[in-house]
């Protein structure tokens, strides 16, 4: 066993020195497993996350808003694709990951199990949910696994408009009619706490956090990311005259941060366990799309097979990743 121990120690030193790990490098099994789990969860979140926003594409209140929302949801599909590709470099096929999702074995971000009830939710989701996601993703640009890090860099570049468009929607509503302003405040009330939960439980409650930090997969703790997000977001809410639904929220001069109220983790765990308002609907929608698309995917494969039989030179072996 001695050589393994030696390799693991060297691996830790390697990532500690800010070197990137690439698909063909030796890596501890647990590192690989953690990454597959995290990246595929991240990919599933992008894909499931399309649903609550796609819910409003057909009802966007202006043609401009329709185009922007459609482009944004499409981006999320693209981001899911980049992330599945990154995970595939670790030797797990996209089909396998999707099967796990559809079987309810894989997780995705719980935030997407909340319903989008009004147009203001498109604002709140862009501003808060994407805002929280970006906080995490900026950190992940420096993650130790090369393909994941590169996917994140690309995603962050493309995501920059997402949060802005969400905030713009909120701003328009907050400055609109009484009804619109009420709609914006209601959306903030419903999305605020679930957005804070997106960063995950407190560090002392997250058993995997320390290991992920040592491997340089994660670069900041859940609590630090959450605090950064709150500090950034509160003035944005004030600027458009909306109030954060937290009576305990106040600036702490000494800490240089906002203090905030206790998060109701029982809600978080209930949603993670599958009992959120829309868990069933989200998975159903994914299962339906996958099942109804099966004959299409098969047809294209069959056609390709026939074509390569007709032109043997164009044949190509169907084998998983090599990059």
């Amino acid at each position: 066993m001695a050589p393994t121990v030696d390799l693991e120690a060297r691996f830790l030193a390697y990532v500690a020195a800010e070197n990137k790990v690439e698909p063909k490098h030796w890596m501890p099994d647990a590192y690989r497993k953690t990454l597959v789990r995290q990246i595929s969860q991240h990919a599933h979140s992008e894909v499931v996350g399309m649903l609550p926003e796609a819910n409003w594409i057909t009802r966007a209140p202006s043609l401009r808003a329709k185009l922007i929302l459609l482009a944004k949801v499409q981006d999320e599909g693209g981001h899911g694709l980049y992330l599945y590709s990154a995970a595939e470099t670790l030797g797990t096929s996209r089909d396998q990951m999707i099967d796990d999702l559809l079987a309810g074995k894989a997780k995705y971000s719980s935030i997407f199990n909340y319903p989008t009830l009004t147009w203001a939710d498109m604002g709140a989701v862009g501003w808060l949910v994407d805002g929280a996601a970006i906080q995490n993703q900026v950190m992940l640009c420096r993650t130790s696994y090369g393909p994941y890090s590169r996917a994140m860099v690309r995603i962050c570049k493309e995501e920059s408009f997402h949060q802005r468009q969400g905030y713009e929607i909120m701003m328009h509503l907050a400055r609109g009619t009484q009804e619109q302003k009420a709609m914006a405040q209601d959306a903030l009330n419903r999305w605020w706490w679930p957005s804070l939960m997106m960063f995950g439980p407190s560090d002392d409650q997250s058993p995997n956090s320390a290991q992920s930090m040592a491997w340089r997969i994660k670069r900041k703790s859940n609590d630090d990311l959450r605090q950064e997000f709150i500090d950034k977001t509160v003035p944005q809410a004030e600027f458009i005259g909306l109030s954060i639904p937290d009576p305990d929220l106040k600036w702490n001069e000494e800490r240089g941060h906002y203090d905030f109220g206790a998060i109701d983790w029982s809600e978080f765990f209930a949603v993670v366990a599958g009992n959120g308002p829309c868990n069933t609907e989200r998975l159903e929608a994914r299962r339906k799309a996958h099942a109804e698309g099966a004959w299409v995917r098969e047809a294209a494969s069959a056609y390709a097979a026939k074509q390569s039989a007709r032109r043997p030179a164009a044949g190509l072996p169907a084998k998983p990743h090599a990059a």
Partner: peptide, 30 residues
Amino acid sequence: TPDQWPLWEVFVRSKNGLSHKHSGSLHAPD
């Protein structure tokens, strides 16, 4: 007929005169 479409690596030349650069991958039947 394998359900999963094969994987392809994508290289994009973003500007005239530059070389193609690896952008990522995707699945496609052909």
